[in-house]
Design a protein around this nucleic acid. Structure first.
Lengths: 110, 110
DNA sequence: AACTTTTATGAGCATAGCAGCATAAACGGC
DNA sequence: GCCGTTTATGCTGCTATGCTCATAAAAGTT
């Protein structure tokens, strides 16, 4: 009987965490950072997002502990802090794939 | 080099999936259904949500294949379709806990 | 201190998504 | 057929959040 009647607080925190991952921009930033730590200028160049946009998204991810940053002079070097997101994405990705495959199979049968 | 530069489409689909889980109401419904299949009336009673609200959330979850339903006369019996959500929630829950613990330890040291 | 570079933040706009009300649609019983 | 029960859906308002512009704050240089 896993996850039996979780408290509203837990549900809220879970939902809040998933909400962080519910934005393609944030996922992309996380993926970029997973390639290795880099500064904001590099993120701007790679993603095409505006500086303020990136700054806001990163601060959200940082509050959740998914990224951290360290100063290098005037620049900030961000890094991905948690492998959990990787695992979650891979689980979901696998599911998306198998689901599409089964839909394909259904089409074939019909 | 996991998750290297995923396509925008994949990012969108991942984000869309996580968005489904970013709503406490939907998580709660999934949890209720995980206790076992049940009809909408029971869900209304257990959660206190309005009928239309529940219907909408369930339809979203159904489109994603996270729940399915089967007719019993005029009523619909819904059931949770995928253990993935359980796994995801447990992973995140574990992370939330360890994170709070480390924050506690930090407080102790300071 | 003044100036440059880099990042964070306040204000405003636009849009997405939730929540409720009313109503339509599906199903069964008569 | 009509009526009651259960679920889905159109419409509406509201809130939250993404995104941009402009500007402030932080850090280094001279």
């Amino acid at each position: 009987m896993a996850l039996a009647a979780p408290s509203p607080q837990l549900l809220d925190e879970l939902a809040q965490f998933f909400r962080l991952l519910s934005e393609p921009a944030r996922l992309q930033l996380l993926c970029e950072l997973k390639q290795g730590p880099c500064d904001v200028a590099a993120l701007i160049e790679r993603t095409g997002f505006s500086q303020s946009h990136i700054s806001r998204q990163l601060s959200q991810l940082q509050r959740a502990g998914l990224v951290s940053c360290q100063r290098d002079g005037v620049r900030l070097i961000y890094r991905a802090e948690d492998a959990l997101v990787d695992d979650l994405c891979e689980l979901v990705q696998t599911r998306l794939r198998t689901r599409l495959e089964s839909q394909l199979a259904q089409l074939g049968k019909a």
